[in-house]
Simulated scan of single mutants.
Amino acid sequence: MNATAAHQHEVLILGAGYAGLSAAIQLAARTRKRGNLRVTLVNPYDTFTERLRLHMSATGQKTAEMNIPELLEGTGARFVRGWATAVDAGARTVRIDDEWILRYDTLVYGLGSVADTAAVPGVDEHAYTLNSPQDAALLADRLTRPARLDGGSVVVAGGGLTGIEAAAEIAEQHPQLQVLLLARQEPGAGMHPKAKAHLDAALARLGVRVLSGVEVAKVLPDGVELADGTHIPAAAVLFTGGTRIPPLAAAAGLRVDERGRVLTDHALRSLSHPDVYAVGDAAAIRQRYGVMHGTCQSGMPTGVHAARSILRVLAGKQPRPFRFGYYHTPLSLGRNDAVVQFTHPDGSPRRIVLTGKRAAAYKETVTAAPWPTFARMKKMPASGALWPHGGRYTRTRSAA
């Protein structure tokens, strides 16, 4: 469709995470002086969830509250608070809160991943997760009342980045608690030996016990049961062992992969529905090195590229291919320690590593950067990307 068409083109964006919010700001800022495009952003909460800081919130530390409607002021984008409960890709509509309908001409699907609480029996009933600030607050309440823990240990199930950061943060902020990290493989196994050695030493210094090569088969009211039948008692269990994708896209008939991620073309359009763009964790985006794994590092570039692709199509042009390479893996180990593993574009480790206080300062800069970057997008929407989470994203010329 040509951008000069008389009717207003409706772009509906589902999810205000790193990817969805980037898409909304780029689209709205670049078109706020035009009257033929309207951008609507839908999200269950009106505050931005800093997923990179949820392990801090889970230990009772205060983090900045970032208001999405305030950020969007002056862009022309409309914010709608609600849950997207169904997508009708044929009718181009989305049901909100099972009560009312929003129509779209172009949909940006940015509903990211959540903890896979269905993968292990008992997680829903007995474990804590870090899906949202509300989840983090529940765990913080539990941890900040030591009497309620009855002197038992805290089990963190999952040895990925979230599990490692959470275990280190809990151990540092609550040294009176025993923290046990359960992992299928050794934490940091994919890092350069120098980075892994620092990680191991930091966990030992904090008193975090690590049990690797194990699999949690069940979460119980008083602990966890491993696949070999071993029972490990725990007063609280934090589950970080894997994620899942909401089934909304698959239910709408969009082509998805085995994990439920939307299959996309080179411009991030759905292979089955070209009027739908998928961004962030919700998308299965193929690059030369394989399918991207969802991270905050790659989320913002996908949102920006989807916005630019939409504008190019509306202008009667062909969208350019999305090209992205990973740059680093920053991992906090409490407030004053961290390890930063620099990577090749495919995510494999390079020999360059930062550790200690320098790495902690680097990680803090990365974590703190999204909000100022969003603000800069409002003022300089046509500029190349300065990605706060790192990453190599191919710049494109202005689509306007």
Rank of each mutant, 00 (worst) to 15 (best):
M1Q: 09
M1L: 15
T4S: 12
E10M: 07
L12V: 04
L21T: 04
I25D: 02
A28K: 06
T31F: 01
R32A: 05
N36D: 09
N36P: 03
L37E: 07
V39E: 00
V42M: 06
F48R: 03
R53M: 15
L54W: 03
H55R: 04
A64M: 03
E73I: 01
A77Q: 02
R81W: 07
A86N: 00
V87A: 07
D88Y: 06
G90H: 13
E99Q: 07
E99K: 01
W100K: 06
R103N: 10
D105T: 02
V120Q: 03
P121V: 06
P121S: 01
H126D: 07
H126T: 05
Q134E: 11
D135K: 01
A140N: 01
D141W: 06
L143G: 09
R145H: 11
R145V: 10
P146W: 06
L149R: 00
D150M: 07
D150Q: 05
V156F: 04
G159Q: 04
G160Q: 09
I164S: 06
E165G: 10
E165A: 13
A168F: 05
A168D: 13
A168Y: 10
E172Y: 11
Q176L: 11
P193V: 02
A195P: 08
H198Y: 14
L199V: 02
A201S: 00
A202K: 01
V208C: 05
V214I: 08
V216Q: 00
D222K: 10
G223D: 08
V224M: 02
E225G: 03
A227M: 10
A227C: 09
A235I: 12
T243H: 08
T243L: 15
L248V: 00
A251T: 07
L254F: 14
D257P: 10
G260W: 10
L268G: 09
R269A: 15
S272H: 09
V276K: 08
Y277G: 03
A278R: 13
G280C: 07
A284P: 11
R286G: 13
Q287T: 15
C296Y: 04
P301T: 09
V304A: 11
H305V: 11
H305E: 13
R308C: 12
S309T: 14
L311D: 05
K317T: 12
P319M: 13
Y326W: 12
Y326I: 09
L331M: 15
L333G: 10
R335A: 13
N336M: 13
A338H: 00
Q341I: 13
H344R: 08
P349N: 02
R350S: 15
R351L: 14
L354I: 12
K357F: 15
T365P: 12
V366G: 05
A368V: 13
W371N: 06
P372Q: 10
P372K: 01
M377V: 03
M377P: 06
K378G: 03
M380L: 15
P381I: 03
A382H: 14
S383R: 12
G384P: 14
A385V: 15
A385W: 14
A385Y: 10
P388T: 01
Y393C: 11
